[in-house]
Amino acid sequence: MNLTLKIWRQEDAKSPGKMVTYPISNIEGHMSFLEMMDILNDELIEKGEEPVAFDHDCREGICGMCSMYINGEAHGPDRRVTTCQLHMRMFKDGETIHIEPFRANSFPVLKDLMVDRGAFDRIQQAGGYISVNTSGNTQDANSLPIPKADADLAMDAATCIGCGACVATCKNSSAMLFVSAKVSQYALLPQGRVEAKDRVLNMVNQMDIEGFGNCTNTGACEVECPKGISLDNIARMNRELIKAKA
């Protein structure tokens, strides 16, 4: 199929950017969106132009690096997929595709479609861990009984890949879905309870320092999240915060 791409081009973090139009042809439906971008970049390089910078790593939906706001939605029009898992068959021949970086002041654009998601790392460092002795005396994880239902919910929360689609999608650029997934994954397990209070306070505090917006429960994040992280995690984080403050 033949497509028209409108892509955000930005020299570096300080330069202003703009949308630039590129026609592209001979795209197959089974290609992934990133393969399509590779083809575009090959063509640009051959013409001696600067290729479009975009983030990617695993290309199988597990690392969370690929981003892009495609046709008005984070990770494009498909559900429960990352951009690397998005197939070109989701688009029609002759269609115009708008491609923009994830937008939030807390995710500054580095170049073209690449943004700095270091804010997530700093939130994670503020409390997204448990302190265990790893000097060789580690307790066997299975020696702690955990109800299956809790283990499943914790696992669901732990599938968050930190991609930032929730922030990119949210009208308030709120990071609540991400932070709540990280808080929940530990809050549900006995190993995580020990530091639960400090964790939620520190992670929420860091989230606020980073300048993310306030959640208004629109639910857009849950719909666009490639891993289907549930809003219930946000409610759980709010409960954890109330408990920690009380």
Partner: peptide
């Protein structure tokens, strides 16, 4: 106050956005 804070969290808006695909008008326009 919250609304103003939330607006400030994204100073460059999307050129093309389809919020209607993932949330309701009423939830976005409180």
């Amino acid at each position: 106050v919250l609304e103003l804070q939330n607006r400030r969290a994204r100073s460059i808006k999307y050129a093309y956005s389809k919020p209607g695909t993932n949330s309701s008008w009423i939830s976005r326009n409180m």
